[in-house]
Design a protein around this nucleic acid. Structure first.
Lengths: 128, 128
DNA sequence: ACTGAATATTCTCTATAATGGATATCAATG
DNA sequence: CATTGATATCCATTATAGAGAATATTCAGT
């Protein structure tokens, strides 16, 4: 993602200027996730999560791939861009404890029966 | 400016998520300016410039001081913050030529009769 | 085909913020 | 004290985006 136009910058900043989207980035920085896990960790209604994920993808911050019934989202590769720089900064902010509750809920999901051992566990371990 | 709350991050990103505000930061990165010079360089209506400057000050990105009739705005000191990091990144983006026309108009103002030699020149050289 | 789970889209409502024009304030000067 | 230039605020309008509910789509398995 290369920055030439003002709109590129504005688009990135707009994408980052919403709390639920920052919370999503906080979750995804550790690795890809399916929508349902983001929904669980954020404790938000599914349409809202889906819409914000779509927003971030539309603006180039996320990639997604379909895996059976699940859509796996992950942070888009973004070396040397304004977005990459902000990811590094946010990493620092997140590490200081912002959105810790979300991260804790996600951690429980990752190692819990609900994700790993249920027969409807998604992605066969790829995303959890 | 220390970042602890999500709103701090969101507020900074919102502040940066508008083209005219980025154009203002591009002008101010070289030093303080009064409103009229920003207005000249951006070729925007005075109320719009004034409002965006007020917005940036309200959200902690700018400081201002009164000097006779003029209000001098400058970028707020922001070491070690998310804003500081983005200033560094924007410096790079601006240096690549974004908003070059604004910078050129400002350069003309800085060395022109209109600013330096007229008897209503502001700030006695402090800001131009 | 039908079902159910996962995800996406649509709709309406609401809140926020930007725009443009007019006007108000404020400080210096005549 | 009236005026002028510089700046700030107000108002009405418009545009954008988030919220919440309902519905649609997609896919695997039966």
């Amino acid at each position: 993602m290369d920055i030439n136009e003002p709109m590129d910058c504005v688009s990135i900043y707009k994408s980052l200027a919403e709390e639920s989207r920052l919370r999503i980035l906080n979750l995804l920085r550790k690795g890809p996730l399916c929508v349902c896990h983001v929904q669980e960790a954020l404790q938000m209604p599914q349409p809202k999560v889906s819409k914000q994920l779509a927003y971030l993808k539309k603006h180039g911050l996320l990639d997604s791939r379909r895996h059976n019934n699940w859509t796996i989202y992950e942070i888009a590769a973004a070396d040397e861009s304004l977005f990459a720089a902000n990811l590094r900064e946010l990493e620092r902010v997140f590490a200081e404890g912002m959105f810790r509750d979300d991260a804790n809920r996600l951690d429980k999901l990752d190692t819990s029966i609900a994700c790993v051992q249920r027969d409807d566990a998604c992605c066969e371990g790829e995303c959890c």
